[in-house]
Design a protein around this nucleic acid. Structure first.
Lengths: 228, 228
DNA sequence: GAGAAAACTTGATTCAGGTCAAGGAAGGTT
DNA sequence: AACCTTCCTTGACCTGAATCAAGTTTTCTC
């Protein structure tokens, strides 16, 4: 079997496995595999910029993608981090408006790009895709709501504590969690500076709430973490 | 014509005029009018609380509704303020999960309540409602994204400036904008305290950027407002 | 595996804005 | 119109966290 055929099969399989496109017909699946194409990105490369025309959207195949805003002075706030199988940029495409934020890969990455018009046709003609999108958007609205809550009502230690407990839940509820992004990026996600985050990590270690070994964090005292 | 008939007609008309239910069939419209009912609320009364089972959702007929979170210490962060014709609580109903935040009316209010199960049936069976919801969710995701951006990357004066310019746009681009909510609530929406907001209003007045007369604010210097 | 480049930590300083406290202005109610 | 309540403003104080600076560790890359 020639290489491009194999790639096409992989691609089709990947699309079929994604949450967004579950329940789609086999012919539409083939069509999607036809029109989409894989793009690879180097360390930290930008995917798109805020304000750019949204000519299509992306899905993460490998690596992680951050969606972020920049202040005038260059400070960064990460809105979201997407991993394997997750689509991003669909809001802009669906609305036919420019991207509302920047996107860049963390480390290296491989993405699947879908041109916009085809996607819009698909959503309008395919109730199951619309419902999948509604489910995804609902999740994201909830996440954004808690992010707003944390930024406004919690101090940095509280936000970090929440995030650690969140990671623990994601990672099979173990006491031992592993950071999947650099600490500087975590700071940007929590709406603080690397320096402050570092200090708080240090303080929590001193107080015996966590144990910190590089990217591996042991949650020694869930009680006190939850109390933040 | 008996009173209840007239009310039913009004209700039906109101539902038909809403964005969420545009494109719905006349029979479904009648059904919605049948199952929904009007609720009235006194000054500042709660509509629902975070964590409550979502047995249905609401649409604003009269007044304004705030969706908000509370911190342990009782500080409030308003996530959203909804006005006439806007639905709220649908995310929770659609997901079949508890309400993610609290809701209360500002001043007095009149709401239309829709029981949940019927609504879910409707969304699943009616592509135009699903698409309308997608459009609404997209808008809200954008709004939340800018709210996160502002909370994290702008200081309070910048957030206030943005809000004033936003109000100006909403209110026919006049130089003269009118606050439609108490200043204390505005503070809670911008993620600050009434005291701080008051001080910043005072400073902006001194500097000749705005003129403040009760709830009416004149934007004297758009340039400088945009520069924040 | 050496050298370069990121990423992280720690210290010193500064400041935006939160909190407490108390007085003043509106607005609703009888 | 007088009352009460809610809302708003101003002052004094304090603290969480940003910033600047400099060193240290980790990690890429060749």
């Amino acid at each position: 079997m020639p290489v491009y055929r194999k790639n096409m099969e992989n691609k089709k399989q990947f699309i079929a496995d994604s949450f967004l496109f579950t329940g789609i017909s086999s012919s539409q699946l083939a069509e999607l595999a036809e029109i989409s194409h894989v793009k690879t990105y180097g360390r930290g490369e930008a995917v798109f910029f805020e304000g750019e025309e949204a000519d299509g959207f992306y899905m993460v195949i490998e690596g992680k993608v951050k969606i972020f805003k920049l202040s005038m002075e260059g400070r960064e706030q990460i809105l979201h981090i997407f991993g394997r199988g997750e689509p991003f940029g669909e809001v802009a495409v669906f609305q036919g408006r420019p991207f509302p934020a920047n996107a860049a890969v963390l480390g290296k990455g491989k993405l699947l790009f879908f041109p916009g018009p085809e996607f819009i046709r698909l959503v309008h003609g395919n109730p199951s895709i619309a419902l999948n999108m509604l489910a995804m958007f609902s999740m994201r609205l909830r996440r954004f709501a808690t992010q707003i809550e944390h930024l406004s009502l919690k101090e940095v230690p509280g936000r970090l504590a929440s995030h650690l407990l969140y990671l623990s839940r994601e990672q099979h509820n173990r006491e031992q969690v592993t950071l999947d992004i650099p600490k500087g990026q975590l700071a940007s996600l929590l709406g603080t500076s690397p320096e402050t985050l570092s200090r708080i990590f240090a303080k929590m270690s001193e107080e015996g709430i966590i144990r910190l070994q590089g990217k591996v964090i042991t949650l020694l005292d869930r009680e006190r973490l939850e109390a933040f």
